[in-house]
Design a protein around this nucleic acid. Structure first.
Lengths: 109, 109
DNA sequence: TAATCTTATCGTAATATTGCAATAATACAA
DNA sequence: TTGTATTATTGCAATATTACGATAAGATTA
């Protein structure tokens, strides 16, 4: 026990949950907002931006990379990160599909 | 160490992360999709629907209730659940705001 | 080359989440 | 009242996440 029983659910349900999990930490939200705000590659200053230890920041970046929503490229001694716009749009579309069209009058409890 | 350092981040960042966390499990996605599909109060059959133990299902329902996205009302011996449309729309709007307007050409890495 | 800078990874501790059996609590039926 | 049905809570074990110091790996500089 302790591990999520993914086999009980559809691929789509697991996919949505996995995307949500990637967003389920304020540091990762902060990283994504920073990259979106800069609207470009950001090299090196993410550790200063967050206030977390370098190892912790690196770990959050790794999770976002594994989720596919950001990408990094080595630029000399440092690494440049940016949003992966294709995956970003996939996230947006999946969440939009999930949230769309709930009748306000559903409230019957 | 081990606990999220929420004080390092803005209220908005913590709010988005908290919402994402509520959605970050396939069982909770399945519950929400089922309630949306039924588009009404659902009494009692959620345990059969999920395939998880009754205690586990109850725990996921509790998390969704704490997040505010569903509400339950006692109906005799059983409990009826439905989407809280107000909170649902808040989620939708916050995610929409988060995902909107990322230029496809940001990709520069 | 040696020192320095940047990022990733390892190891470890603290905390959180997931899952379930057992049990409690409440409502209803016989 | 007694039994049954439904949901919540408790207690526990397994696993996952978060955080950070130490260290490694690679590039740049002196």
């Amino acid at each position: 026990m302790g591990a999520t029983k993914t086999d009980l659910f559809t691929k789509q349900q697991n996919d949505i949950a996995a995307m949500a999990k990637a967003l389920a930490h304020p540091a990762r939200i902060a990283i994504l907002q920073y990259l979106v705000k800069k609207n470009a590659c950001v090299c090196g200053d993410l550790v200063d931006e967050l206030g977390l230890a370098q190892a912790t920041t690196s770990q959050h970046l790794k999770e976002l990379k594994i989720a596919g929503i950001i990408q990094g490229s080595i630029e000399g001694a440092s690494v440049c990160y940016c949003i992966n716009p294709k995956v970003w749009k996939q996230y947006r579309d999946l969440f939009n599909a999930f949230f769309k069209d709930v009748d306000i009058n559903t409230n019957c409890c």
